[in-house]
């Protein structure tokens, strides 16, 4: 057993878990944060993407124990102060989701893309960057559009913050 202490969406959490417990299972089963999904068992689909210390991570590839001491953000912690995150709003405005199963991972990957590459993302970059996220419903067309729009909005926010 391992004692893990993880800050999840700004709240300190701790638990004793089996050594083999994956971060995604810690989030879903121990913390009841079921917005993070499991779509495969080979770290291909990206439905489980969360942010660990600000970086996108497939939470099925990381042990909960490895995340101990880290700051983890899940889809449930993305919206703030009663307002949707611009990336969430962009998925809504651009019909970037259908069944919704891959969506949390897509949004977390989209936000991470902007954090790493800045708000000016063209279609080619977005498509290449999405190679770790699979969607079976949308054909990606509107996901690409959503991320571009979300990035633009995030850019406005960054500009405001800089001023």
């Amino acid at each position: 057993m391992a004692k893990v202490e993880i800050t999840v969406n700004g709240k300190a959490t701790s638990a004793n878990v089996e050594d083999r417990t994956l971060l995604v299972d810690y989030l879903r089963e121990t913390r009841n944060l079921t917005g993070t999904h499991v779509g495969c068992d080979t770290s291909q689909c990206g439905a489980c993407v969360v942010h660990v210390d600000g970086k996108a991570v497939k939470s099925c590839t990381m042990l909960a124990a490895q995340a101990s001491g880290s700051d983890v953000k899940t889809i449930e912690g993305v919206a703030g102060n009663g307002a949707l995150h611009p990336m969430q709003e962009a998925f809504h405005q651009n019909h970037g989701l259908q069944c919704g199963f891959c969506t949390p991972g897509m949004i977390m990957a989209g936000i991470d893309m902007v954090n790493r590459l800045g708000p000016k993302l063209d279609e080619k970059i977005i498509r290449a960057e999405l190679e770790g996220n699979i969607c079976r419903c949308t054909g990606y067309h509107n996901i690409v559009k959503s991320i571009a729009a979300g990035a633009k909005e995030m850019g406005k926010g960054m500009k405001k913050a800089a001023q």
């Binding site: 009841n32 079921t34 499991v38 899940t74 993305v78 969430q88 919704g100 949390p104 949004i107």
Partner: peptide, 21 residues
């Protein structure tokens, strides 16, 4: 019309079978 059901999916509040306990 934008989708009524979107909000729960984009906030992680969707409830799929495996999410039930």
């Amino acid at each position: 019309v934008l989708r009524k059901e979107d909000k729960r999916f984009i906030t992680g509040a969707g409830r799929y079978t495996d999410d039930h306990k």
